[in-house]
Design a protein around this nucleic acid. Structure first.
Lengths: 339, 339
DNA sequence: CTGAAAGCGCTTACAG
DNA sequence: CTGAAAGCGCTTACAG
């Protein structure tokens, strides 16, 4: 099925070559001003639609950037995506989104698709267990990759993420300063760099406070609201109940808080709860959630501009930039509720 | 920059023509079994990457479907997207996601991009104020469109959405049956079909209950968690305070509930609150939220398969299918909390 | 069962 | 400042 209106259609209508039409539509200074205006006008009138596949076949530039994260519905990623989107928009790059739900094969089929479409680059929060070879394969086939949120040893590409160990340390230090000596950690898994880092921060904080780590107070696993909610009963069943909880993420913390409330225990009054990420919902939760801001928008913005740099031809830098997290104290760790 | 390995590279390596290689890789029965296997093996060894832009330029089929909604972070759309994704995945279509944030120009630039990429189709929850002409333009240029969640008069395409008027009626009827005579409605705008329909259902429910509509009890506007939260104080300032609230959406209802709680009024005890959509979070909210299930996954699945039908060549059907909503009674409208 | 050739709609040297 | 021609990597009739 041939295209209705193409460069040659415009050319014929005006008695010009496709070369001139092509140059004019892309604002080349080679074309005389009047000619350009005539061409643009004709294009508009004829309802011309630029054929990007043809152009990209010729130039091997597609204007497409792929972004793949665990789950776009997760507000943590949502805030990163928002800033990636606005950065890429400004540079007229189309962005293709994908959830891999930590499924390696989904992530692979996505990068394959990007390769097949001749995407210009990809921003990836790599699925759990992603081998460095997957990233290198993409790079070797001309697809520049930037990593966000998670790190992969030996991938040899640039990355941006919050300093998770430091941030979780801030949370624990704060609880210790409030006098807590029994602090549980709920959620996260050692299978991701994020999970490992945040647990490391938790342990380091305990150590700084002179508090021994107790394995029964480390409830691993929960990474979303529902499993956080479910884990509250596990916490409540603990023989010796801690007075405070740091959570892997805000989503987990919100689930935990509502789970505690359902069990008749008041978060922020009976048990201190701290989250991680500072998602938008944190400040209007009941009670407002004390949390650690993870610099989502900075991660998004900097990863997008790093990718854009590489598209400009700047050499890849093998380094991971850590964004400094910040503690946001609200009421869930014990301060009185505002009225 | 030429492609490293292409059909001709494989052909040369094996002493075969690109035609045979092309057919073999797509499992044509025309190619002898042994030949096909040799070709596939060579392709694997050489690290061949299929060039979809070249193929699509030739066939004018791209395997791309665009999906554009107000905001992918909104859990209501999230659930629709999830089922669209799995349906399209099964048919090996790549899907491109886009948020228009109710910005017409963003939506237009997205459909332009789809047209330029030669996308096979689009599923759209149209931005506020989308003229029917926008949809027709896409269709005329060979981009089949399916509408979800919102309707556009005169667009002449197929659509799927919940029966919003009926569903909101269910919510009001339930509150009336519990004895409520003063029922406010918070959120939504008359600028969308959804907003209009839900308000119509609210009014119809009041009428069935023999209750007069009171404009001061119709708080328009809020459509997300934050504005719902903010509107709670407006509600609390009402001189004569209603005993129940129906909300435009669960997100609004959750915001309202936490806003009421912040103001010292207990949702589900002092004021009954009902949401709309039955998002996953509704059942673990504090208190668990009574709401109306809007059939998100059915909307997603049916819109995707309707689009796939059209890609098979089935004629467009100009009709909107209404999915029947269902009331989900939980504790936020007055039943006692479970322990 | 396999091959030679044309063509999808662009862009890019190269001439003029 | 404008045009003629080649080529990006596929697929598809058409021959054989």
């Amino acid at each position: 099925m041939a295209q209705r209106v193409k460069l040659s259609t415009i050319g014929e209508a005006l008695g010009l070559s496709t070369a001139t039409v092509s140059l004019a539509l892309r604002d080349s200074p080679l074309v005389a001003d009047v000619t350009r205006e005539r061409i643009k006008e004709a294009a508009r009138e004829l309802g011309y639609i630029y054929n990007r596949r043809a152009a990209s076949l010729r130039t091997s530039r597609s204007g497409i950037v792929g972004v793949c994260v665990h789950d776009v519905m997760n507000p943590f990623y949502g805030e990163i995506l928002k800033s990636i989107e606005s950065e890429l928009d400004r540079h007229r790059q189309t962005f293709i989104l994908c959830n891999h739900h930590d499924d390696l094969s989904k992530q692979r089929s996505f990068t394959d698709t990007l390769l097949q479409l001749g995407a210009d680059g990809a921003i990836l929060s790599p699925a759990l267990g992603t081998p460095a070879a997957d990233i290198r394969l993409a790079e070797e086939n001309g697809l520049p990759v930037i990593l966000i949120a998670r790190t992969i040893e030996g991938a040899g590409v640039e990355g941006f993420r919050g300093d998770d160990a430091y941030g979780m340390g801030l949370a624990v230090d704060h609880l210790v300063s409030l006098g807590h000596r029994s602090i549980a950690m709920i959620g996260g898994t050692r299978a991701t760099s994020t999970g490992r880092e945040r647990e490391a921060g938790y342990r380091a904080g305990l150590e700084r406070g002179g508090i021994a780590f107790r394995p029964e107070w480390r409830i691993e696993g929960p990474r979303d609201r529902h499993s956080g909610f479910a884990s509250a009963s596990e916490f409540l069943a603990l023989p010796e109940r801690p007075t405070a909880i740091v959570c892997f993420s805000d989503l987990v913390a919100l689930g935990v808080m509502y789970g505690l409330a359902r069990g008749g225990v008041r978060p922020g009054i009976d048990v201190a709860v701290v989250g991680y990420d500072d998602i938008e919902e944190a400040e209007i939760a009941m009670p407002p959630l004390t949390t650690v801001s993870n610099g989502q928008s900075e991660v998004g913005e900097r990863s997008a501009s790093a990718l854009l740099q590489r598209l400009q031809g700047v050499e890849a830098a093998e380094r991971t930039t850590l964004i400094e997290p910040q503690l946001r104290v609200r009421q869930s760790c014990g301060a009185p509720l505002p009225r």
